[in-house]
């Protein structure tokens, strides 16, 4: 008889292997993120539920990297401050939780990263939409059936709608994004700031 844990691991294999097919998307996103950081941009991360923990993880990864010697980069999670978050949602409604913060904190040179499985929380979709209209570089990490939001620059969809498996894949993807940003920033400026200009 197959053990319950064996079944649990087996379900994870196909969506995890499928991430390899998205490698060009991940590399391209990291390339543009590095350019933003190089130009002085900051990263603003947001999500709900497990995605909120991922937003906090992403922020600490960039500000205080686990890898010794890596450079510290400015990244802020929009989910950590209970006073601010509850005040914003009281004033504007839950759907505006991140959009309202992005209107105040986001600048055109910044990077917005919204994280969550499909169906993506309304507040995360609205946050991404606000970031698009504000001129931020936008990155979405979500699940396979989430309808693409127009204008979002880098849309990564884990090929699963199981929210836990999607999160596991998202952790791998943002770890790789972090590492590749460090790699690109180690390069001389022309690589990161204007790929077209090099040609």
């Amino acid at each position: 008889m197959t053990a319950p844990s064996d079944l649990a691991f087996a379900r994870r294999l196909p969506p995890a292997e499928a991430v390899a097919e998205e490698a060009p998307l991940i590399a391209g996103a990291a390339h543009e993120m590095a350019a933003r950081f190089r130009a002085g941009g900051r990263l603003l991360a947001f999500g709900t539920g497990a995605g909120a923990a991922d937003a906090a993880h992403l922020a600490v990864e960039f500000v205080h990297p686990a890898v010794v010697g890596a450079r510290a980069l400015p990244a802020i999670s929009l989910v950590n401050d209970g006073a601010a978050l509850t005040a914003v949602t009281r004033a504007h409604g839950h759907g505006q939780a991140f959009a309202a913060q992005l209107r105040m904190l986001g600048r055109p040179g910044d990077i917005a990263v919204g994280i969550g499985p499909s169906p993506l929380c309304r507040s995360v979709r609205r946050g991404l939409a606000e970031a698009v209209s504000g001129g931020l570089l936008t990155v979405a990490l979500t699940g396979t059936t989430e309808p693409v939001l127009p204008g979002v620059r880098h849309w990564f969809a884990a090929r699963t709608d199981d929210p836990r498996i999607a999160k596991e894949i998202h952790v791998t993807v943002y770890h790789i994004l972090w590492e590749l940003v460090q790699v690109f920033l180690d390069q001389p400026a022309p690589h990161s700031s204007a790929r077209e200009a090099v040609r």
């Binding site: 390899a20 490698a23 991940i26 391209g28 790789i176 590749l180 790699v183 690109f184």
Partner: peptide, 15 residues
């Protein structure tokens, strides 16, 4: 070439 290299390393990390 750089993008090709980092794409390859991403595939390796997934593996």
């Amino acid at each position: 070439a750089l993008l090709t290299a980092v794409t390859r390393s991403t595939v390796e990390k997934v593996r």
